[in-house]
């Protein structure tokens, strides 16, 4: 069966600096893949290559059987692959509802009634229906990020990409966003998630991808990866996180 997303020997560099090095990856429909790794390992870049914000210089990218490259009409692809950013980037000069309806009405040319119904249903589901006429600056970070997720969902994508979507949030707002993503996963959405939230990764992922230096260093199911990392790099990486979780009490003078 053809995978929904397939990368073969995919490479990308910025100028002379290689960022992705002959990456091979298959993502099946309905799979939730979480990508972990130290900063600079290429995980964000990988995501951005999937919706055409960056282009690779070697290797192949296939989506739903079609090859995507420099000649692709990315507008079409981007309606089917949605992306949510770390800094949400809602359109500040538009209300919440206008943010949600811009894509469906202008890009997909759907009927206003139908698009409105979908947007309001989604808002209802995350408990933000009363904010439909508010402007982004009137909302908290967690609320804005949830709206950003809805904005992507309103396009009816087949895949959702999440690029460190809780990294810029105050800690108390992280939960409400992660709950939305979990909910989506339970509904069967195909997702690629870049995150630092280890417990969340463990809970939501079907597969963990550990990246380091532009390559996939280790791939495994979450239980195996977290309790028994196979590679030295993965072990070192996880160790750093467990230190923070179990920080020893400071010695008194």
């Amino acid at each position: 069966m053809t995978a929904l997303i397939e990368l073969s020997s995919f490479s990308k560099r910025f100028g002379d600096t290689p960022v992705l090095n002959a990456v091979d990856l298959r993502v099946e429909r309905g799979e939730v893949v979480v990508i972990l790794g130290p900063s600079g390992c290429g995980k964000s870049t990988l995501l951005r290559c999937l919706n055409g914000l960056e282009t690779g210089h070697a290797g192949k990218l296939h989506f739903a059987g079609r090859e995507l490259n420099g000649k692709t009409d990315w507008r079409d692809v981007r309606q089917r692959i949605g992306m949510v950013f770390q800094s949400y980037h809602l359109f500040p000069h538009k209300t919440v509802l206008e943010n949600l309806l811009l894509g469906p009405l202008r890009v997909q040319k759907r009927s206003f009634g139908e698009a409105l119904a979908q947007a309001e249903a989604l808002l209802e589901r995350v408990g933000l229906l009363d904010k439909r006429d508010a402007y982004p600056r009137q909302l908290s970070g967690g609320q804005q990020q949830r709206i950003a997720i809805l904005r992507a969902l309103c396009m009816n994508p087949e895949v959702m990409l999440f690029d460190e979507v809780t990294a810029a949030l105050d800690p108390e707002m992280v939960k409400e966003v992660l709950e939305v993503i979990l909910d989506l996963a339970e509904g069967g959405m195909t997702m690629l998630i870049v995150t630092h939230e280890m417990a969340f990764a463990r809970a939501v992922a079907d597969r963990i991808l550990f990246m380091d230096g532009g390559v996939i260093a280790e791939q495994n199911d979450p239980e195996t990866f977290f309790s028994n990392p196979q590679t030295a790099r993965a072990q070192q990486f996880l160790e750093k996180f467990s230190y923070v979780e179990n920080m020893p009490k400071r010695k008194s003078p």
Partner: peptide, 11 residues
């Protein structure tokens, strides 16, 4: 990010 967010919804 405004440009990227706009592109990401297919504008």
């Amino acid at each position: 990010g405004q440009r990227e967010a706009g592109l990401a919804i297919g504008l």
